[in-house]
Design a protein around this nucleic acid. Structure first.
Length: 671
DNA sequence: AGCACGCCGACT
DNA sequence: GTCGGCGTGCTC
């Protein structure tokens, strides 16, 4: 730090990040530490500080305590401390700063995801437990040492060396279930692999972070961990927990003993000074993309953290995302594959419905019907479908246009057979409905949802139990008895020992979605369902042919990702390039684009008019220019926020900023 | 965001 | 002459 100017010599200066989403406040402010707070104001604690005028008090984090200040003017004093507990770990601050810079956003926005609000009761309990441990004659909790497990199913310990060597890898998961000895539960083999990797870090005295898309995945990991790691060494930290639980988990993670921290996307921001390995499972799942500003994808957070803390990094999954494939082709990630004998038995059939009545109505070609018929004798059979409900879409009988809600224009669906059609957005019943295009008053069902498929399967397989699992009827486990389990993609329950057969029914319909990532997403959904089958059980992919079907059949998912990535390179689409959407007034957007390097500006799409938001442009640039582009656009955002704030449109009374930037949003490429 | 500072119209 | 209008800019 530099020489003292305004600060009283000998009196410490706190460098504070103010908790504000305003881009112009996203830097450190210096405050004198008053005599009464000297010693208490330490890096990592929350403080109250005056901002601009003494009457206005803001919250902030002390990032550093130094001897002097660079600031030319008079320094204000820290008003008070919020708590003595240093909740912001240095490595988390460093990560938040880097991640925010990369995304053109504010560090305080990232910290809001990383540090839960203070919970006095939790803090007191924690402090009391600490005191008790220190006062005891002998250590109360001599931590049980963790034994490093061998990472099984992979050739020649290729994964065991990865953690101590701080390696980085794209690891293909074994598409099978495993029965846990103590627990008796069946979990995905991937969860066992993740747990084994974590034990290697823990045994060396380091932490591990395991990030998963959702709570069902989290359950698999927690169970797999419980078999190999003492419970005190497992910390669950996810956004569904209460603030109290998150705060407790944060304090636990900052303890002295090594722990494995498991959670969804925000777990990558957990404190962990000694971090041995980061495992990200199924990185292609859209749940990893953060919906809050600055919208950083967990995969990117993991990559930044890996570089900052020199940890091992594993992207584990059944399918390969194009993003991870890009890193493989760059040589940044090594490829690790399991023993080929674990390859599943996938039977693609582009053949459409069978000729016999019931199977035809249930959209099942004869191959699939035969497989299912034989398999269901011995246990549960999984049927994956695209849509929940009974009729996922209704259309006007006259003109065929999609039926839309008269109140909010949302699509009208039918949830159950015989149920009154209702809007899927606002829930309003479609009574007295008329078509907005042709004034027709009758609608017909188009497409088939899970419960209708279930009805039809019930007829095609008389006497067989049918179970439906979708978003509104979540089922995590089914039993071993014969049943047809109809589930929407992502909501498939686990069956003991795996399903005796899997039918992937709505492939064609899933592929009809207009999105940059359809093929990749479908392959991921199918691969994840395939991983729920028992060993060598038939997995029938219905109604899909071509490269996609053969990729699944040969289980060459990485090769497919590679060809998909090649296409994106050709088109200059993500993840071959990075993108940023720049939204604002005609003037601010034009000025921001004007500041970009010529080659970057040359690849801009737009600007185009966007209702209620002004204009929007999509900037595309090479990954290596990311830092430069983020810095330029960020400075433009600050400039627009600082100068005259004239709102474009009023949104519920609140002015929208005149310039906004969002990096790596794929939404503009959908539709 | 708030809040102070600053340069133009009607007022005791 | 000045009280206060809000447009403009800064926040340690």
């Amino acid at each position: 730090m530099s020489a003292t100017s305004a600060g009283t010599p000998g009196r410490p200066v706190a460098r504070v990040l103010v908790d504000s989403p305003l881009p112009q406040l996203d830097r450190l402010f210096d405050y004198r530490v008053p005599a009464r707070l000297v010693g208490q104001v330490v890096p990592g604690i929350r403080v109250k500080v005056p901002l601009r005028s003494a009457g206005r008090i803001a919250d902030g984090f002390v990032v550093d305590v130094v001897d002097g200040s660079d600031h030319a003017g008079e320094l204000s004093e820290v008003d008070d401390i919020v708590s003595e507990v240093p909740v912001l770990a240095p490595e988390v601050w460093r990560l938040a700063r880097a991640v925010a810079d990369r995304a053109g956003g504010s560090a305080s926005d990232v910290l809001r995801l990383a540090v839960p609000p203070r919970q006095v009761r939790v803090e007191k309990a924690w402090a009391a437990a600490r005191l008790a441990a220190e006062g005891a004659d002998e250590p109360v909790t001599a931590p049980e040492p963790v034994v490093a497990q061998a990472v099984t199913a992979y050739r020649a310990d290729s994964l065991h060396d990865l953690v101590p060597a701080r390696g980085r890898a794209a690891v293909d998961a074994v598409p099978l279930l495993v029965e846990l000895a103590d627990d008796g539960a069946w979990v995905g083999h991937w969860a066992v692999t993740a747990a084994q990797l974590a034990t290697v870090a823990l045994a060396a005295g380091d932490n591990a972070i395991i990030a998963v898309p959702d709570y069902r995945d989290e359950d698999h990991v927690l169970r797999a961990l419980a078999a190999v790691v003492p419970s005190e060494a497992i910390v669950r930290l996810d956004s569904r927990q209460s603030n109290a639980d998150r705060y407790r988990a944060l304090l636990h993670a900052r303890g002295d003993d090594p722990v494995v921290i498991v959670g969804n996307r925000s777990v990558l921001l957990a404190p962990s000074a000694r971090l041995g390995v980061i495992v990200v499972f199924d990185d292609g799942d859209p749940l990893f993309s953060e919906p809050l500003s600055p919208y950083v994808h967990a995969r990117d957070t993991a990559l930044v953290r890996q570089a900052q803390q020199d940890t091992a990094l594993v992207f584990l999954g059944h399918a390969r995302s194009t993003d991870v494939q890009r890193l493989v082709e760059l040589g940044f990630l090594a490829e690790v594959r399991p023993d080929p004998r674990y390859q599943p038995k996938v039977i693609p059939t582009s053949q459409q419905s069978a000729h016999d009545g019931f199977a035809a109505r249930a959209r099942i070609p004869s191959t699939a019907w035969t497989e299912a018929r034989a398999a269901v004798e011995h246990g549960p059979v999984l049927v994956q479908v695209a849509h929940p409900g009974y009729s996922p879409r209704l259309a006007c009988t006259e003109c065929g246009d999609t039926a839309r809600c008269l109140r909010c224009n949302g699509p009208v669906v039918q949830r159950e057979q015989g149920a009154q059609p209702a809007c899927s957005w606002c829930g309003a019943l479609a009574v007295g409905w008329h078509c907005k295009t042709c004034e027709g008053t009758a609608m017909k069902a188009v497409g088939t949802g899970a419960s209708r498929t279930a009805d039809e399967l019930g007829k095609a397989f008389p006497g067989v139990r049918v179970i439906v699992a979708d978003g509104t009827r979540p089922i995590t486990h089914v039993d071993d008895a014969p049943a047809l389990v109809v589930a929407t993609r992502g909501a498939e329950p686990v069956a003991p020992g795996g399903y005796r057969a899997v039918l992937l029914l709505d492939g064609e319909r899933m592929l009809a979605r207009e999105s940059l990532r359809v093929a990749e997403d479908c392959l991921r959904w199918w691969a994840n369902a395939t991983a729920l089958a028992s060993r060598r059980a038939p997995v029938v992919l219905v109604g899909v042919g071509g490269a996609l079907a053969s990729a699944l059949a040969t289980w060459e998912l990485a090769r497919f990702a590679s060809s998909e990535l090649a296409d994106r390179r050709q088109l200059r689409f993500p993840p071959a390039v990075r993108v940023a959407t720049v939204t604002g007034t005609v003037d601010t957007v034009a000025r921001a684009l004007g500041e970009l390097p010529d080659e970057v500006r040359a690849e801009t799409l737009g600007p185009v008019d966007v209702p209620e938001a002004g204009v929007r442009a999509i900037v595309r640039f090479d990954v290596r220019r990311g830092g430069e582009v983020a810095q330029i656009l960020r400075s433009q955002v600050i400039r627009a926020a600082t100068e005259r704030r004239k709102a474009i449109g009023q949104k519920r009374g609140r002015a929208v900023p005149t310039l906004r930037v969002r990096f790596d949003d794929v939404e503009p490429f959908t539709d």
